[in-house]
């Protein structure tokens, strides 16, 4: 397989890149939705991010990528039945980025009876699906607004509970499935269901750059990449490496990043002014601002972090006037101006 286009070689689109990095630092931020024009590097950026993710400890040979350090309650059946922590063998593995293709069938997404074994041996064996593969990693859906409804239904529940419960074909299996949902699409081709929209922590709008310089640069870099992929990736390796280290460092720093009450208050005021539903807006805003601060190497979340993340964290949470979609960014901007 050819190496993906380097993350740092993507020109512009800073908001998208930041949102992706933030979600890589803190899983609790809860996923990124990238909506926008065709040919703006949406899928390119997401595939590029996959190669920047740090490695994490996983239980060896576990089908569900279990974390050896975690409490038995949140592990899969096999790992939690192993009583002592010491007896678990672990290995360092790259955080998975799993592609959910549009043509996927339900049995491959959720997991199902292993047909081969059922037919040849007559035994009931569970064959894990994509949600198992994506546990503790990322689940990427391109053209998420075209995903078939019955697949969306099954995703929604799992994304909310972090657990996949399979009750079908005489099987009864539950396993952890905590993943970060990453979606991309073009709003002209269809709306996203509100329930699914709500599952994304951050949402980013991307636009085609309109000045000649930037466009020329994009075309040049793309040409360079296509004419010799290996060499191009090698050339950008150092810059990409710096981003990877930045993410790793931020992950370590994250638990010690403090949020002052004054910042919390500001976030709450902002959300109440905008009239966002529930508390998810505030929570996402704070956790993403914290991850952003960690990325900058700062130990305190300040207004500027809040400001930077507010648009991505709130624009899809405004009280839904479905016909007013385009102006939601400007509504957030207006509220920001009033507050700061």
């Amino acid at each position: 397989m050819s190496p993906p286009f380097p993350f740092t070689a993507i020109v512009g689109q800073d908001e998208m890149k930041l949102a992706l990095m933030v979600s890589a630092v803190d899983h609790l931020v809860g996923g990124v939705l990238v909506f926008g024009d065709r040919g703006t590097g949406k899928s390119t950026a997401i595939r590029a991010l996959a190669s920047l993710l740090p490695k994490v400890k996983m239980v060896k040979d576990c089908q569900f990528n279990c974390d050896p350090e975690e409490l038995p309650l949140t592990l899969c059946e096999m790992c939690s039945s192993t009583s002592k922590k010491e007896s678990v063998k672990s290995s360092l593995q790259t955080i998975p980025v799993v592609d959910l293709p549009l043509g996927a069938t339900e049995d491959r997404v959720l997991g199902a009876l292993d047909i081969e074994i059922a037919l040849t041996k007559g035994e009931k064996v569970f064959e894990p699906g994509l949600l198992a593969k994506a546990n503790r990693g990322f689940l990427y859906i391109d053209e998420v607004n075209l995903l078939e409804d019955h697949i969306v239904d099954s995703l929604l529940d799992v994304a909310a509970s972090g657990e996949n419960v399979v009750e079908r074909e005489g099987l009864s299996v539950r396993h952890p499935a905590r993943f970060v949902l990453i979606g991309s699409g073009n709003p002209e081709e269809g709306e996203l269901r509100p329930q699914l929209l709500d599952r994304f922590g951050l949402s980013v709008e991307v636009k085609t750059p309109n000045d000649i310089k930037t466009r020329t640069q994009i075309i040049r870099l793309r040409d360079e990449y296509e004419s010799d992929k290996e060499a191009f990736v090698k050339k950008w390796k150092r810059k990409d490496g710096a981003v990877r280290r930045k993410i790793t460092k931020a992950k370590e720093l994250l638990p010690s990043v403090k949020v002052k009450d004054s910042v919390l208050e500001k976030a709450a005021t902002l959300c109440s002014q905008l009239g966002t539903d529930g508390l998810r807006g505030e929570l996402t805003l704070i956790s993403s601002a914290r991850a952003h601060a960690a990325l900058e190497g700062e130990k305190n979340v300040s207004d500027k972090h809040l400001l930077k993340m507010a648009r991505s964290a709130l624009r899809h949470r405004l009280r839904r006037d479905p016909l007013d979609e385009s102006s939601s960014t400007s509504r957030v901007d207006r509220a920001l101006q009033e507050l700061f």
């Binding site: 293709p101 549009l102 043509g103 996927a104 049995d107 491959r108 997404v109 292993d114 047909i115």
Partner: peptide, 18 residues
């Protein structure tokens, strides 16, 4: 969408029926 994704990534991801 399937054709587009194959054009973009030069690969077909099959996740169907086991």
């Amino acid at each position: 969408a399937s054709i587009c994704s194959a054009l973009d990534s030069n690969q077909v991801v099959v996740e169907r029926e086991g």
